[in-house]
Amino acid sequence: MASRKMAWVTGAGTGIGREVARRLALDGWQVAVSARTNADLDSLAREVPDAIHSFPLDITDRDSVNAVATQIRDTLGPLDLVILSAGTYVPMSAKDFDVDGFAKTIDVNLMGTVNCLAAVMPPMIARQSGHIAVVASVSGFVGLPAAGAYGASKAALNNLCEALQPDLARYGVRLSVINPGFVDTPLTKKNDFPMPFLIPVEQAGDAIMAGLKTDRFEIVFPWQMSVAMKTLALLPHGLRLAITKRMLR
């Protein structure tokens, strides 16, 4: 087993993480999968027997992250690829601003990812090889109504990845940031507004798998949403805020 390529995917119970883990396993990888719900991981493992290995985990627990990362390396071998996909979304407006919900979002999306990075970067730096991909979001490009907590966490991930990429590169470790638009997952089903350019999770899987095979730092999709959000981010504040005001419910 140790001679085969090894991957670790967090947030693999549902959505994008699950789809990418399944794709990697079908491509011949040995894949460690983590999420908080054992049943989701068990059902995924049944889809590709002998290739997917379940390691239940709450990424907000730093000690547990370190223990699981060590367990994976001891069981499966050194990690060639790590995809940090775990995340949560708590919509909130100014009127129903929720400090606990905001803190939970930051704890999972940002600090949970930080916990995982701290666990996987040192061994990769020591080996001078490996690839880490962090799932952020195009919502990190511009502040959007009701997505203040989620967008803030994803903007922080984009900034963090930009800061780490040159540093990791000098040690031979690749870092990618994945910025999806709206993907049909359990998280987006919380939205009660029209989602432009919504794509099925299978299409997201196609884009990510293709992007991981390139040298691009950013994997962003679908292209229509990428163009729209990056153009919006370039507009003067007055015009940009006038546009986002029209998104209010």
Rank of each mutant, 00 (worst) to 15 (best):
K5A: 09
M6H: 11
M6R: 12
W8A: 02
G11Q: 00
A12I: 08
T14D: 01
E19R: 14
D27I: 03
W29Q: 02
V31Y: 14
A32G: 14
A32H: 14
S34M: 14
L41I: 08
L44S: 04
A45V: 03
E47N: 05
D50Q: 09
S54Y: 04
L57F: 09
D58W: 05
R62Q: 14
S64R: 12
V68R: 05
A69T: 13
I72R: 01
R73G: 00
D74Y: 03
I83W: 11
A86W: 02
Y89D: 03
S93D: 13
S93H: 12
D98H: 01
D100F: 06
D100W: 01
G101E: 00
A103H: 13
K104R: 15
I106K: 00
N109S: 03
M111W: 15
N115T: 10
N115D: 08
A118N: 14
V120G: 12
M121S: 02
R127W: 03
Q128W: 06
G130M: 03
G130I: 07
I132H: 03
S137I: 06
G140R: 10
A146M: 14
A149V: 08
A152W: 01
N158R: 14
L164Q: 09
P166E: 11
D167V: 14
L168A: 10
Y171R: 04
Y171S: 09
G172C: 14
V177M: 05
N179E: 15
P180V: 15
V183M: 06
K189F: 03
K190P: 07
K190G: 08
F197M: 03
V201M: 07
Q203S: 14
A204P: 02
G205K: 09
L212D: 01
L212W: 01
K213L: 03
T214F: 08
R216I: 05
E218Y: 07
F221G: 07
P222S: 09
P222T: 12
S226V: 15
K230H: 13
L232F: 03
I243Y: 04
T244S: 01
R246G: 12
L248F: 07
L248K: 10
R249S: 15
